[in-house]
């Protein structure tokens, strides 16, 4: 089964939200900018004051791959990995959930997939036109 996410002090909020079924990003309080991957300081205004913003979960597929050899560690079958651009402009690596192969440009919507230790990660499913 899927390995648990590695968590660090500055990123735990993201994975904890996923475990609750919430899709979020780091938001800088003074300047309202969103950042992913999370980081301790806003690179624009250098504030340490952060909050957590809920995201729409709407995204577009920018790229996809499947790690064939070696197969993805911890998975029964190597999943389809996608790079998505979120509606809010952030990018993230995730997985494609679906029977068919993704196409670059496909519209997708977030869901959550469980991990071996009872946590969760965001994954994406195609939005039918």
């Amino acid at each position: 089964m899927r390995p648990d996410p590695i968590q660090r002090i500055d990123t735990a909020f993201f994975w904890e939200a996923c475990a609750r079924g919430e899709f979020v990003a780091q938001k800088c309080e003074p300047c309202n900018k969103l950042w992913h991957p999370p980081r301790p300081m806003c690179p624009d205004c250098h504030s340490l004051e952060k909050s957590v913003a809920t995201l729409s979960g709407n995204a577009k597929v920018l790229s996809w791959v499947r790690q064939v050899r070696p197969a993805s560690y911890g998975f029964q079958e190597s999943p389809i990995v996608i790079l998505v651009e979120l509606e809010e402009g952030l990018r993230m690596v995730s997985n494609w959930i679906g029977e068919t192969l993704p196409q670059i440009g496909d519209d997708v919507k977030v869901e959550f997939a469980p991990t071996s230790g009872g946590k969760a990660v965001p994954v994406f499913k195609k939005v039918s036109a």
């Binding site: 390995p3 920018l62 790229s63 791959v65 993805s72 990995v81 790079l83 690596v93």
Partner: peptide, 19 residues
């Protein structure tokens, strides 16, 4: 990358070159 099964240099390279 790791919990999504993108775990090798080849996987990261291919994903970044896709677009």
């Amino acid at each position: 990358c790791f919990p999504f099964g993108a775990q090798t240099p080849a996987a990261w390279e291919a994903l970044s070159c896709g677009p």
